[in-house]
Structures are given as C-alpha cells and as structure tokens.
Design a protein around this nucleic acid. Structure first.
Length: 891
RNA sequence: GCGAGGAUGGCGGAACUGGCAGACGCGCCAGGUUUAGGUCCUGGUGGGCAUUGUCCGUGGGGGUUCGAAUCCCCCUCCUCGCACCA
C-alpha cells in the first residue's frame, strides 16, 4: 500500500494508521499556495461569478480567538462548494489596520504604529492561513498601505468636490479616554462604543460627510436586500424617517430685530389646537433673545446647568422633566391664544428645529412636564369609540378631533393631511420629512489614520483640495504620537509637515491635521479586492462589472449600523459618480453568532469572605446589584478561569469548585470570551491539538451559523473522533468496486447539497456523520462511496479530503473536482415504513413497498391488531396518507 | 418604555410548507477489544407505570385541528438593539 512518508504508522491500540494533521495540513497548504489553486480568474468570462466576502479583521495584538474563524470557516466552505459546482469564486481577505489600539500601544512603547501593525498582521495572517482557507491571497489589501489609502483619500476628495464633505464647528461627542471625537453611531447610551468612557460635549472644528443626503436612498435600498431583518430594522430605526409639518408660531411680543417667526416640527399637526406651550432647547439661539429681563437669571442658570450635563446625564433622568419659563409668549396660529415659551432639556437642539409646540394632552413627555409646572392640558383628540381617554396620562393614539374648530370630528388619518394642507394654504407651515440620521462626523484627532487631503490657505483660497497627483498624502514619520493638549491631532505638532504651499495660489498654507476615522478604509475595501494593484484607478470598470455586487457578505452583527451603513453610503456615492455599477454593495448578508466561553463565578462581601452564588440574589431593579440572600449585604463578583477550576464528583454530580478555597462551589456562566474572565480559547492551541480540519468542523457543528454557542472542550473531542473515524475508511479498510450504499449515498448528497445551499452547516455535518457511521460498519467499502465522501467532506475538511483523494490515486486536487450529483430515484426507498396514527396518537407501524396502492396501505394499517383494537365499534374516517403516516380519525 | 429574536433531554442542538419530538454530537450506563488506563468497536440512554404496551412530555395558561415544538390569544423569563427624535 502506498504510504506518505510523513504519515507515521503508529500502533495505537487500534491497528492502523493514525491521521497526522500536523504533517498533512501544512503539506497541502504549501502545495495549494504553490499551485495557485484558489486564484479568482478575472479573464474567465464563461462561468458564473460568486463573490463571497468576510468582514476583514482589525489586526489586534492579541491575535484571533476562536470566534473570528467561525464566519471565515462558513464562507470558506461555501467558496469551496461553489467552486466545485463550477462557479468562478472570488474569496479575498485583507486587514483593516488603521485604528486606536496600535496607536495607543505606540504611545506606551514608543514603537511606531506601522511596525506594530505589520507585526500584528503577520501574526493574524499566519493564524488564518493555518486554517486552510481558500483565500486568493494575491488580492490581499491592507488599509494602511499608502497604495490603498491613496484611494481612500481620493474618494474623500470626490466627496469634497461634490459638497458632501464639509467643515463645521459643532458640539460633538468627544471621548476623553480615546481623546478624539466620535460619530453619533459610535456612542452607545452616552458611552464610547469602543472604550466605554462617558462621552463629553466639545466644540471643535470638524469634518462631516453629508450622509443625510442619502437618507432616503439608504432607507429605500434596504427593502430589496437579502439581509437579516434585524439588521435592516436597526438601520431603518437609525435613519429614523418621520413625516410631519414645520409650523411657524408667531412671537407675541418680538423684541426689535428678532424674527417673529418660531418654527417647530411636529408629526402631529392635527393636535395643533392642543398646543398650550412651547419649548426651546436650552442651546437654541432664540433663548437669549426672547427671555425677559426678570427671567434672565433663572434662564441663564438653567442653560448653564444643561450645558454641563453630558448626554448620558441628560437621558438618564428621563423621568424628571425640568425647565424654566423664558417670560416670552407665542401665539397659537390656529386659535390665536397666547402660550408661554419655556426652555427644557428634554428638547434636543439637534433634532427638528430645536423647538417644539407642546401638546400635553397627546404627548406623554409634554404631559409630564405640563403636570409638573401646572400648564393647561387641553384635549383635542378623543378615542374613536367614544370611550373616555385614560386618566393621568396623555392619549397618544389615533382618534377623532375635538376642540379643533373646523377640524372637529375628523379622524386622525384625515386630520393630519387636512391640517397640513391648511398650514400650506395659509402660509403657516408645510409638510416635511425628517430623519434622525445626522451627518457623519468624519474627523479624528489622532495620528494613525488616513490624513485628510486638504490644506487651509493662509491667503484667500480657503480650504483647498490636495491635487490628485499628490496622492497619497503620506502620514509623516514621527517619533511621538501624543495628542496635543488642545485636542488637536498629533499631526498639528509637526510643523514641517503642516506648513505647506497652497495648491491654488502657491502662498503659505497649513495642512489639515485631522485624520479619518477607522471606518473610512472599510467603506470600500471590497472594491479594491477586484483590482488590488491598479495604479491608475480605484478599480477597473470592467472588473467591477464582472464581479460586483458581493454575493454573500458574512460578519458580526455589531456592525449593523456603523460599517454597513457607511459602506452603503460610499457605494451609493461611487455609483452616482459612475465608478461602480450597482446601487448596493452587498446583496446578501449573514451574521455569525458569538462563540462563548465558560467562566466560573462566586461572590465576595466587603470583608472578602467568599460566598457561593447560590447564596446570592441579583436585584434587577437596583441596576443588577448582588446581595446576600440571608442578610442583604452587598456582594461583588469574583471569577475563576476555566483552566483553574477544580472538579468534584463524577458524571451528573460533577461540580466545579474553587481550586484553593475548600468546598466553595462555583457557578458556571457562559459569556462572551474576554481576557479578564480567562475564558478565551486560542485557535493556535486548538490546531496544534486537533488540526485545522477538526477546528473548522467543530466551529460549524456547534450550532447554526447565526447562533451564539459556548465552546466545549468535550464537544470538539466528538468531532475529532469523527475525523479520525473518517480517515480510517481510507487508511485501513479494504475497498471494492461494488455498488456500495447507493441509497444512503444519494440521500446524503441530496441532503448535504440542500443544507449547504441554505447555509445549514451543522446539520450537513450530521449527515456526514451518519454516512461515515454506516460506512464504518462495513468490512469493505466501495470506491464510489469513498470518492463521494471525500468530495462531500472537501469543503469542511479540505486537508483530510485532499489526502484521501490523493491516496485513492487521484492526481488532480479534490478541490478542482465536481460536486457530486444525486438521483432522486436512487435516493428513494424500496420500502416505506409509516406510522399509523389514530386521533393524533401513534398506534402502530406498517411497512409497504414504495409503489403500494393507497388501499393496500389502508388495509395493512387496519389489519394491525393494535390498530384494530381502537377502530372496533367506532365510526371511522380515514383521513390521509402522508409520507410518514397513515392517519385515521375515529369518533 | 419601544423594537427584534429566543425558551426543546444532564449539555450543544435536530425536526421540510402542521404529520412518528429529541437527528447528530457531548455526557452517562452496559458489554467487547486491551496486561491496565486511554484509544477503538457494539448496544442502551426524555420521564412515569407496565409483560406486548400505555400515560405524560418542546417556558406557563387557553384556543384552532383528526393531529401543534410548529398556527392564534394571554402571560413569564432570557438575549440583543434603540431609548426624551417632538
């Protein structure tokens, strides 16, 4: 028998040859790379293309954990499957390498971020390659390469030229820890999305991109995308489209020189008669102009207080609504009543017009406020059914207008357009559409990002684009990366870089020192894969048309609104510029779930006395505070890493206990892998122990792709056993040229093909297991079965399949072979067994030939003694024969 | 508070458009191989009663149906997202 020299023959309890992943996997990886097996063919215009894309990783210093390769494994399996089915597959990988961690690391160690980044990329690329993925590495892109970010800057300039990039001094979200501004999308509950610090407001000159111009298209485009509904919903809500009306209220006594019109936005113009006061945001420009002298002190004090509050503080106290009266009045345009103008921080300057008409009877916030400050509450909508509106709160639903002059008795659906029309006819307002989406804060005050390619002319030219011929505008080489004390980027301190000549007038000018946010490079990387070395263009139009759009995009759900919306925005812009041919970049999107780890918890009190979790309750109402069940004293969590846990007892009684505190039983918790919990599983260690094929297969076997499942060190053993058992079919079992397990083979091919098409990897693996288990029972295995198995396994376990394929005497790679086909007729059973159900309960089973007539089946069923027993003396209705059941109904 | 998703053995999870609940794997039990352990192989494994069988069982309660994990109504809990957006 032919033997690979590097496969060790081992006596291992079981006679035969053990599969040595440590030798086989690198061997094939090397051969595949040498033979360019996975090149995507630009010049092949006959086969259908399939562009399957992973969200490229940020190369962190810690390297990958087992969560990252889950999505990569799924896409690799599909890429290999599609290749075997004859598609021309594009499956690239790259690195999203600008970002704060490398810069912060540079600050700590003095090592240049470019060096750290390169080192991290090399490590992660090595980790990825060990898993045997079929990426076309010749297309790798790295966002920090000048040849790459040249085009990121180029796109920015196109936006600048098209009035989509502008500067403004605006109060922005500023993270004191990251020392940089943040986009609205990067703030979660008032905290920095990256580091969790509380976000401050700061007034700084910033760059913005007019993503709001694309709001409608970003919203509409979602409808036709094959994306998870949850992601589409999140984007829809983030865009936050609403329809309503801008209404102009007249100031009752406008001070000299002040525009008497006060414009508010409302989605309920039908409640206009119920507007009993108005509210300005504390920062509203009109506040200082309309407040009366006697209210001045109080108003200014309130404005100052509101200004100091962070967004988080402002939203935390959402139940308490505070405000002060300005002393000024406006006139309700519908009924000419004088209504007071207040300021309150529940009105946000950044939405609508920064001012509202308050209708306490029909808006809960206004209701709470009006109740507190004893402002009149006037009902103008009543329920349709004439029932009384609820006591003590606002009636916010649709209904019928009352107290609304000529609009009385109109239902809400009719009243809204009627009011809007009236406003437009009388010049008091107009119908408008608004969005929650704000322009994208695009500048960061950091070093490690793409320089924004503009200069500020010291003369009269203003802000001038760097000429395209000067791109890429390189980051200067520097020793120090500290942000300046003023909140400026570290670039601002590099005088010889900042000081330059104006491209327009040639006079002195200063370079823009802000850099782009990390999202910039990832907005278009999928385009550069198509043409990664093009020095003339971002992407060749012909190649773009050939490959785009991305057929399937897989990545984590955490990018739901950030990356995925920014990339869509850039893509739409590039589409408008004629650079890309499709309106949307990613046709189908799937999210992989998280891989969780086990960690072990107990509690400590103030005196560090350890307590098992069973003695502790967590009070949800008190922000998750943990207290002792007995005496209610406050407890804090303590953790033991999985590898330190001692185990007590056997089998079902097996209990985790503390390694050093005797008798302290620990609570097993599954949660996100993190260094601090000590529950991180490193892929390098898994591969060393089991090999890449086992790791790939286990990642897919754990559960559905989208589900979050805990990594189980026992569970992977089962997959390891399966791989070893599969190998033994090739290594130490005689084969023959007979039919083999024809029916099971066809069924398995059918089932796995369908599962793969539906991205159901876990159940496809279970089909493989059934097939292998059946083959294992045989003394001799047919070559046809062995070949089919190798082909079916090829996407999942590419190394083992290749090794088996070669061992069967094949000289061409299994990955170039065709996906096996199946025959429905051969997959069908000769005999069919059916359960016999009476009134929904199973009472027996019959087996009949595949072609048996219905009558025959009924008779066989009725003849069963256990069935006859239930049918005798009853009125019997035969109901149906379905594939797996014969169904009777009796009375 | 609003929105989305979810709850199935000791565990991870299967179950096509309503049709034999628990595929596959882990764990566990028994047997075999082995000097022993591990590996490997075979069988068993939701719970109760019992001799073929039978009753109960998919978070809880109700409903539709010959038949419900699956459809409808109510409720509980969990996860995620948003959160004063006028």
């Amino acid at each position: 028998m032919y033997l690979q020299s590097h496969i060790q023959r081992r006596i291992d309890g079981h006679m035969g040859e053990r599969y040595d992943a440590g030798a086989v996997e690198p061997k094939w990886q090397e051969r595949w790379e040498k033979s360019d097996l996975y090149r995507a063919r630009d010049d092949d215009r006959d086969r259908p293309t399939y562009y399957i894309l992973d969200m490229f990783p940020y190369p962190s210093g810690e390297g990958l954990h087992v969560g990252h390769p889950e999505g990569y494994t799924a896409t690799d399996i599909l890429a290999r499957f599609r290749r075997m089915r004859g598609d021309n597959v594009l499956h690239p990988m790259g690195f999203d390498a600008f970002g704060l961690p490398a810069e912060n690391y540079a600050l700590k160690t003095g090592i240049h971020p470019a060096i750290v980044t390169k080192r991290n990329i090399d490590n992660i690329r090595r980790q990825i390659k060990r898993l045997g993925f079929s990426y076309d590495w010749k297309r790798e892109v790295v966002t920090t390469d000048p040849d790459y970010y040249r085009w990121t800057q180029w796109i920015f300039l196109q936006m600048f030229d098209n009035d989509l990039a502008y500067q403004a001094s605006a109060p922005i979200n500023f993270c004191p820890r990251c020392r940089t501004g943040l986009a609205n999308e990067e703030v979660k509950g008032g905290l920095c999305e990256r580091c969790g610090s509380e976000v401050e407001r700061r007034e700084l000159r910033q760059w913005f991109l007019r993503i709001t111009r694309y709001a409608e298209r970003l919203l509409d485009g979602l409808d036709d995308l094959d994306w998870p509904e949850s992601i589409k919903t999140m984007q829809r809500e983030w865009i936050g489209r609403s329809t309503g009306a801008d209404v102009t209220f007249r100031l009752a006594d406008p001070p000299a020189g002040v525009d008497p019109g006060l414009v508010v936005y409302t989605t309920r113009p039908d409640t206009l008669y119920g507007a009993t006061y108005m509210v300005l945001a504390p920062e509203h420009s009109l506040v200082g102009k309309v407040m009366t002298q006697e209210r001045r002190a109080e108003v200014e004090a309130y404005v100052e207080r509101a200004r100091r509050k962070s967004d988080r503080q402002r939203t935390e106290l959402q139940k308490d609504k505070t405000g002060v009266f300005t002393g000024a009045y406006a006139v309700n345009p519908m009924n000419e009543e004088k209504i007071p103008i207040w300021i309150a921080d529940y009105v946000l300057l950044s939405y609508g017009t920064g001012a509202i008409m308050a209708v306490p009877a029909h808006d809960q916030r206004d209701y709470v406020f009006a109740s507190r400050y004893e402002i009149p509450i006037v009902t103008v909508i009543e329920p349709h059914d004439g029932s009384r509106p609820p006591e003590g709160r606002a009636f916010v639903h649709d209904g019928v207008n009352v107290n609304s002059g000529p609009f009385d008795r109109l239902s809400t659906a009719k009243a809204i357009p009627a009011f809007t029309k009236h406003l437009e006819d009388s010049g008091l307002g107009k119908g408008v559409v608004r969005y929650k989406l704000r322009d994208w804060l695009f500048s960061r005050q950091r070093y490690w990002g793409e320089p924004i390619p503009v200069v500020h002319c010291s003369g009269t030219c203003g802000t001038v684009a760097v000429p395209e011929s000067e791109l890429p505008l390189l980051l200067p080489e520097v020793e120090r990366f500290e942000p300046t004390g003023t909140g400026d980027s570290p670039l601002a301190a590099i005088e010889e870089w900042v000081s330059t000549a104006c491209p327009k007038c040639g006079g002195p000018a200063r370079r823009e020192t802000n850099t782009m946010p990390q999202w910039a490079g990832s907005c278009w990387y999928y385009l550069r894969y198509l043409d990664p070395t093009n020095g003339e263009k971002l992407v060749d139009p012909d190649l773009e048309r050939h490959w785009m759009p991305v057929d399937l995009y897989v990545g984590g759900a955490e990018h739901a609104v950030l990356h995925l919306m920014y990339a869509r925005f850039w893509h739409m812009f590039l589409n408008d510029q004629g650079i890309v041919s499709t309106p949307e970049p990613f046709g189908a999107l799937r999210n992989q779930g998280m891989i969780l780890g086990f960690s072990y918890r107990y509690y400590m009190d103030e005196a560090d006395a350890p307590t098992p979790s069973s003695d502790v309750t967590v009070i949800k109402e008190a922000a998750g505070r943990a207290v002792h069940r007995g005496d209610g004293r406050t407890m804090r969590e303590a953790w033991v890493a999985a590898q330190d846990v001692a185990w007590q007892g056997e089998g079902a009684m097996r209990t985790p206990v503390h390694p050093t505190i005797p008798g302290l039983v620990l609570e097993e918790v599954t949660e996100k892998m993190s260094k601090s919990r000590g529950n991180v599983v490193n892929p390098d260690e898994v591969i060393e122990r089991y090999g890449a094929d086992v790791m790939r297969m286990y990642e897919m076997f754990m559960g559905p792709l989208e589900a979050s499942c805990p990594w189980s060190t026992e569970g992977i053993e089962g997959v390891h056993r399966f791989i070893m058992r599969s190998w033994r079919l090739y290594a130490d079992r005689p084969s023959n040229d007979e039919e083999g397990l024809t029916r099971l083979r066809h069924r398995t091919v059918r089932s796995i093909t369908r599962h793969l098409e539906a991205l159901e990897f876990n159940t496809a693996i279970s089909d493989l297991m059934v097939y292998v288990n059946e083959l294992t029972r045989l003394d001799e295995v047919s070559t046809t079965d062995l070949e089919t198995l190798a082909l079916l396994m090829a996407p999942y376990a590419p190394h083992l399949s290749e090794e088996a394929w070669e061992r069967m005497g094949r000289t061409q790679s299994v990955h170039l072979a065709s996906w096996p086909s199946f025959d429905e007729k051969l997959a069908a059973a000769e005999t069919v067994s059916r359960g016999v159900q009476i009134n929904g309960k199973l009472r027996g089973e019959i087996t009949s030939g595949a072609g048996a007539a219905e009558d025959e089946i009924w008779q066989a069923a009725e003849a069963l003694s256990n069935v006859a027993r239930y049918l005798v003396g009853r009125e019997v209705t035969r109901v149906r024969i379905v594939p797996r059941l014969v169904i009777f109904k009796v009375k």
